[in-house]
């Protein structure tokens, strides 16, 4: 059974079909790329998958359960984590707290344990610190755990956002342009990290990217969206040599 199965997914804003008749099959443990020209509906598709928008039609099955109609937070609990195109960190919180707050559903204690400082509070806080530091170490952010998120340089902010999403222990991780604004070196490093977390945390990744070369470099399978509908899918070689894809990108 596929991890994520999307059927006939669509949404309209007024008269505009932003996403129309999209079908996706995502298998466990794979790394997928979602590409398409500007305005193709890539981010809208992410917003549909995470419940930020409710689809006009279609179904989204995660591990065999329909998640359409669920709230964003419920979908995260069901196993989808994500990052945002325009970085959305908790800017006035430290790097460590940004990750710890994402561990909140994994390591729980009651309100009273927290305000009265029961032993459980100290125990759980320690566990959270340890997990959070482990995750930060993967992204080379462990030295900056006390920095406010807003004071991080841009590239590290992108990484912290991925770290935060990972901390929720998702089955499927959606990355919205993780390399946007990075220089080629940073991008190459990030791609290594993405491969690494896929293996280390044993998760499935779907990422939006503009740079086709980059997507081709790390993704096992690519979906191409254009005008809200599926234009092509398959292995990088197949997709990038597809005349329809080339036309869409070059706008011929």
């Amino acid at each position: 059974m596929a991890l994520l199965e999307v059927k006939n997914l669509g949404i309209s804003f007024g008269g505009l079909r932003a996403v129309d008749e999209v079908n996706l099959n995502i298998e466990k443990g794979q790394l997928y790329g979602l590409i398409g020209p500007n305005g193709a509906g890539k981010t809208t598709l992410f917003n549909l998958l995470t419940g930020v928008y409710q689809p006009t039609n279609g179904t989204i099955m995660l591990d065999g359960v329909n998640i359409v109609g669920k709230n964003t937070y419920e979908i995260n609990l069901a196993g989808i984590g994500r990052t945002f195109q325009n970085i959305r960190l908790f800017k006035n919180m430290t790097v460590l707290d940004n990750v710890k707050v994402a561990l909140t559903n994994r390591e729980k204690y009651s309100l009273f344990s927290g305000i009265l400082r029961f032993p459980l509070y100290f125990k759980k806080e320690k566990i959270m610190n340890d997990i959070a530091r482990d995750i930060l170490a993967v992204f080379n952010l462990e030295q900056e755990e006390d920095t406010l998120a807003s004071n991080l340089p841009y590239g590290k902010q992108r990484k912290l956002e991925i770290a935060r999403a990972l901390a929720t222990n998702p089955k499927l991780l959606l990355l919205d342009e993780p390399a946007a604004g990075m220089n080629p070196n940073e991008t190459a490093e990030l791609m290594d990290t993405i491969r690494l977390i896929r293996d280390k945390f044993n998760i499935t990744i779907l990422l939006i990217e503009h740079d086709m070369k980059l997507v081709a470099g790390i993704c096992e399978e690519i979906f191409v969206l254009n005008f809200g509908t599926e234009l092509a899918k398959g292995t990088p070689e197949v997709v990038l040599n597809d005349p329809a894809v080339i036309t869409a990108y070059l706008g011929a």
Partner: peptide, 27 residues
């Protein structure tokens, strides 16, 4: 104590970005 606990962190995260808070499973 509240502010430095799990619940306080959640409350501050909502202030900073409620959508991101939802995306990490916060009700």
């Amino acid at each position: 104590n509240l502010i430095k606990s799990r619940h306080g962190r959640i409350i501050t995260s909502i202030r900073d970005n409620y959508l991101a808070a939802e995306s990490i499973g916060i009700h």
